[in-house]
C-alpha cells in the first residue's frame, strides 16, 4: 500500500500498453493504451458485448493478451513468472459479476479463506476480521449463512467483503450495481468511495450505471464494438459535455446527443 499512502505519487497503479484481446480468431479490441492512476476510480464503459468483462479478465490474469503488455506499478504482469504473479495477485481483490462466492462455504468462511491462506492470524482472530468485513458491507449476523440462502444483492455485498478481505491495493468490480435496487446501488457507490478514501485503494469498475459513473468515476475509457478499440478516455462528466465523439456523448446522455 506504500504507493497509495504516499498520495499522488506519479507511479500509476496499472498501465496497459497496446493490448489486443481475442477469442480464437475473433479480435475483440486492439490498440488499448491507458493508465490507471493510483487512487483513481477508473470506469470501463462501452456498449454490451464490446469486451469490458474480457478486459477485466485480462487485467487480473484470467485471460492472456494476444498482444501487448500489462504493468502493475512498474512491473510487467504479463511477463511475470507464476510466483511473481501470485504475489502481485495478493494485492488485488475482485468482485465478480455473479458474486462467485464459494457455494460450499458459509459467508464467514468465504471471507476467512484468503485471511487464513495469506496471513498468520489465529483462527479466532480470522473470525473476528471476517465478521468485521461482513459488518462493513451490512451483513452482520449473516456469517453462518450459505451463499444460496441469501439474496442476489446480499451475495454481491458478501463478494465485496471477500474481495476486501486482505485490504487490497486495487479492487476490481464487474457490474457491481447490476441486480441491485436504486438505494442499494447508491449505498454501494458510497461504500466504494469510502473504501477508496479510507484504504487508499485504486478501484477499477465495469459498469453501465450512468448515475454511479458520474458520481464516483475519476477517470474512464470507452470501448467501441464497431471500431474495436477505445475511442475516448477521461473524466466521464468531461466526456459527456465535450467529447469529440458523438457516440460517447450519446452513451453518456442515454442516447440524446
Amino acid at each position: 500500500m506504500e504507493a497509495s499512502l504516499a498520495g499522488g505519487t506519479p507511479v500509476p497503479a496499472i498501465t496497459v500498453r497496446d493490448l489486443t484481446m481475442a477469442y480464437g480468431d475473433f479480435v475483440l479490441q486492439r490498440h488499448l493504451d491507458f493508465t490507471i492512476g493510483s487512487g483513481d476510480i477508473f470506469v470501463i464503459m462501452g456498449g454490451s458485448g464490446c469486451g469490458k468483462s474480457t478486459l477485466l479478465r485480462h487485467l487480473i490474469g484470467l485471460n492472456e493478451p494476444r498482444k501487448g503488455e500489462i504493468f502493475y506499478g512498474t512491473e510487467s504482469f504479463t511477463a511475470a513468472d507464476e510466483e511473481r504473479r501470485t504475489e502481485m495477485l495478493r494485492r488485488i481483490g475482485v468482485l465478480y459479476q455473479s458474486g462467485a462466492l464459494w457455494s460450499s462455504m458459509t459467508l464467514a468462511e468465504n471471507v476467512s479463506l484468503p485471511l487464513g491462506e495469506f496471513t498468520s492470524l489465529q483462527p479466532d482472530e480470522i473470525r473476528e476480521v471476517a465478521e468485521l468485513k461482513l459488518a462493513l458491507v451490512g451483513l452482520a449476523g449473516f456469517e453462518d449463512y450459505y451463499p444460496s440462502d441469501i439474496s442476489g444483492g446480499m451475495q454481491k455485498r458478501a463478494g465485496l467483503a471477500r474481495a476486501m478481505a486482505l485490504d487490497p491495493e486495487i479492487l476490481f468490480f464487474d457490474e457491481p450495481g447490476a441486480g441491485l435496487d436504486p438505494i442499494s446501488a447508491r449505498l454501494l457507490d458510497d461504500l466504494i468511495l469510502e473504501l477508496r478514501d479510507s484504504l487508499g485503494a485504486t478501484i477499477v469498475i465495469v459498469t453501465h450505471e450512468l448515475a454511479s459513473i458520474f458520481a464516483i468515476a475519476t477517470n474512464s475509457i470507452f470501448l467501441d464494438a464497431e471500431s474495436r478499440t477505445m475511442i475516448a478516455t477521461g473524466l466521464p462528466t468531461e466526456l459527456r459535455d465535450h467529447s469529440p465523439s458523438d457516440q460517447v456523448r450519446r452513451f453518456l446522455r442515454r442516447g440524446e446527443s
Binding site: L62, R85, R90, Y96, A100, L101, W102, S103, F118
Partner: peptide
C-alpha cells in the same frame, strides 16, 4: 466463476 475467484486470490 468460483474457480476464477480462487485463481485471482492466488
Amino acid at each position: 466463476q468460483e474457480i476464477d475467484a480462487l485463481e485471482t486470490m492466488a
